[in-house]
Amino acid sequence: MSTSLDRLFEKVRTENRAALIAYIPAGFPSIEGCNKAIKALAVAGVDAIEIGFPYSDPVMDGPTIQEAADISLKAGTGAHDVFAALKTASDCGVASVVMTYWNPIEKFGVDKFAQYISDNGGSGVITPDLPIEESTQWLVATDKYDINPIYVLAPSSSDERIGKVTSKTGGFVYAASVMGVTGARTSVSVNARDLVSRIRATTSLPVAVGLGVSTREQACEVAGYADGVIVGSAFIKLLLNAQSESDGLHAISELAKALALGVRESR
C-alpha cells in the first residue's frame, strides 16, 4: 500500500520538479497559531509538512528550533497536540509526517504511536536519533500500520551504511546536507550533492535534502539534484521575529510561495 507521501513523490517526478517540504513544531507559535501556519503553508504551495514533536533535549537542533521547542513545551504541548497538528496538515491535502526524537515515541508506546500516525492521516515518521540498529520494534510497527519509516543520512555515512539504511527506509531518504545541527545557512554545502548521488547508488527511493535551506535560490539549486527540499528553521525564524501572529503567517506564506517557485525552476 502506498502513502500520500509515496504518491506525492510519484506526482512531482511526473511534473519534473522537486517537492517542497516544510517543518513546523506542534504547538508553535501556539496551538492555534500552528494550525494557521499549517494551513497557510499548504495554501502557499508546500507539498508536504513535517510536524515536529517538541523535545526537552534536542541535540540535533540549532538555536532557532530549540527556541521554538521551548516555547511550545512551556505552553504544555504533548503527544495529542502533535497528532492533532498532523491531522490538520493531512486535512489540508498535503502529505504529512511527524519528526521526533525517539524517547517520546517509546514513552507513548511504539505500536500505538505508529497507529496514531496512521489514524490521523500521517504518512510516516522521521526519527533523527534512531539508528537502524535500534529499530527492530519500530520497523515492526511502521510495517503493521503501513507508514513510512524515514531515516536520516549524513555526509559522514559510509557507502556500506547508506545501503543498510536505505534498505529499511520508506517514503524518502532524508539527506542531511552538512555535518551539524539544524539552522539556516548562507550556502548549502557541496557535500549535499555528493551525498545524494551516493544515496541514489543504493536505492530508487526519493531523496530529500534538509539542513540549511532558506531561500528560493537555494531551493532551486537543491531541486536540481534532489527529489525534495526541506525547509524548517527559515520558517520558524520568521514566526519568531514577527511583530504579530498575522505578520508571521504572512511572512511564511510569502517565503513558501517563493520556495515553491524555486523547486520548479531548476530543470
Binding site: 541535540v59 540535533m60 525517539w102 524517547n103 533523527p128 536519533d129 534512531l130 539508528p131 537502524i132 540498529e133 535500534e134 527492530t136 520497523l139 515492526v140 510495517d143 531515516y151 536520516v152 543520512l153 549524513a154 555526509p155 559522514s156 555515512s157 559510509s158 551504511r161 539504511v165 542531511a176 555535518m179 551539524g180
Partner: peptide, 28 residues
C-alpha cells in the same frame, strides 16, 4: 519486511545502545 536483530554490542540487557544522529555513527 525482514526485521533484523538488535546488535548485542553495547547493550546491557534492554539498556544501553546508541540513540544518536547519523552524523555521529562513524565517530562512535
Amino acid at each position: 519486511m525482514i526485521v533484523e536483530n538488535n546488535v548485542a554490542d553495547g547493550h546491557f540487557g534492554e539498556y544501553g545502545g546508541r540513540f544518536v544522529p547519523e552524523a555521529l555513527i562513524g565517530a562512535l
